[in-house]
């Protein structure tokens, strides 16, 4: 029982991180109808920005303020980067086919990875130890062991999800995002500057990915320029699982993938834990292409 609860907690934590990344995929899909494959690299850069702000810029480690500072730095830099990527790489292709944009996204992803791997321009190819951002201690609740880090990850993820919900449902720009994702023509006819809303969407999604990168790195000993690929793909699966373009769906999908992965890791099938997400992807595409919360409709991707 304790074992189960422990795994449940771990699964929810991992799921919350996947959810943060998945939301970026799904928001961008909502406004532009394409998968931003560079999203997972923004996630990776989030972890590196936190690393730089501690290791190079001297933010204190094991400090609440230092940790929050590193998190905010990662979110801001990633938001700016997301806006720049959209502006330079995707906006010029606005009237091109989805395929052209998808291939460009893969190109952007490779470019970021390669720059990050370059010892001169980036961080070099070797893994770096990720510092302890927040003060950590182990709490024992019943038979469970919970670290304050884990609680922090959960708290940050929940706060970000709540803020996102508020932005999307309660603010003018958030409503404009939803209006645009329904119909770009109608949005422009009420005076929405679609390009600005798209920029905002990239910034928002990238900030969440940056936060996800920091939270992910907090639970792993080291970070490297290719660290985004696998979690990025899993988060993409989560977005598809929930119904691409559907925000609650992406959060739910992230949670499901995180839980499944964690529970599979605890069994004899643990070597398959990375494969399981892709098994799920194939199953959804075969049996429920619209995802768990998506409405079935004919749409080419």
């Amino acid at each position: 029982m304790t074992e189960f609860l422990q795994q449940l907690l771990n699964g929810v934590l991992l799921g919350a991180i996947y959810a943060l990344i998945a939301l970026g995929y799904t928001m961008v899909y909502g406004v532009l109808r394409f998968i931003n494959f560079a999203h997972s690299d923004v996630f990776m850069l989030g972890a590196f920005v936190a690393w730089v702000s501690v290791e190079k810029l001297g933010l204190p480690t094991r400090s609440l303020l230092g940790g929050l500072g590193a998190l905010l730095a990662a979110m801001s830099v990633c938001a700016a980067l997301g806006v720049v990527i959209e502006r330079l790489a995707y906006r010029p292709l606005r009237r091109r086919s989805t395929l052209t944009v998808l291939i460009t996204a893969i190109g952007v992803s490779l470019l970021i990875q390669n720059v990050a791997q370059s010892p001169r321009l980036g961080f070099g190819p070797n893994p770096r130890a990720f510092p302890e951002l927040f003060p950590s201690s182990q709490l024992h609740v019943g038979g469970l062991t919970v670290s304050t880090h884990q609680l922090g990850v959960l708290a940050v993820a929940l706060v970000l999800l709540a803020v996102l919900y508020w932005i999307v449902h309660r603010t003018r720009i958030g409503t404009a995002m939803r209006a645009l994702s329904f119909n770009a023509t109608a949005a422009s006819l009420v005076g929405i500057d679609n390009d600005r809303v798209i920029s905002f969407t990239f910034g928002l999604g990238s900030a969440l990915a940056g936060a996800g990168g920091v939270l992910y790195a907090m639970n792993y000993p080291s970070i490297d320029p290719l660290m985004g690929t696998l979690p990025g793909l899993k988060a993409f699966v989560a977005a598809v699982l929930g119904g691409i373009g559907n925000l609650p769906g992406a959060a739910l999908g992230g949670l499901v993938i995180g839980l499944v992965e964690t529970f599979v890791s605890g069994t004899r099938l643990s070597t398959f834990r990375d494969a399981i997400a892709f098994g799920i992807l194939i199953a959804i595409l075969l049996f429920r292409p619209a995802g768990l919360l998506g409405k079935p409709k004919v749409e080419k991707v």
Partner: peptide, 23 residues
């Protein structure tokens, strides 16, 4: 007011009107 109306189907009536007043 365009052909086919193009109301924002995913928004409520109130949100549609508020989007009308976007500017």
């Amino acid at each position: 007011s365009p052909e086919g109306r193009l109301v924002f189907a995913n928004l409520t009536v109130m949100e549609n009107l508020r989007m009308g007043a976007y500017l």
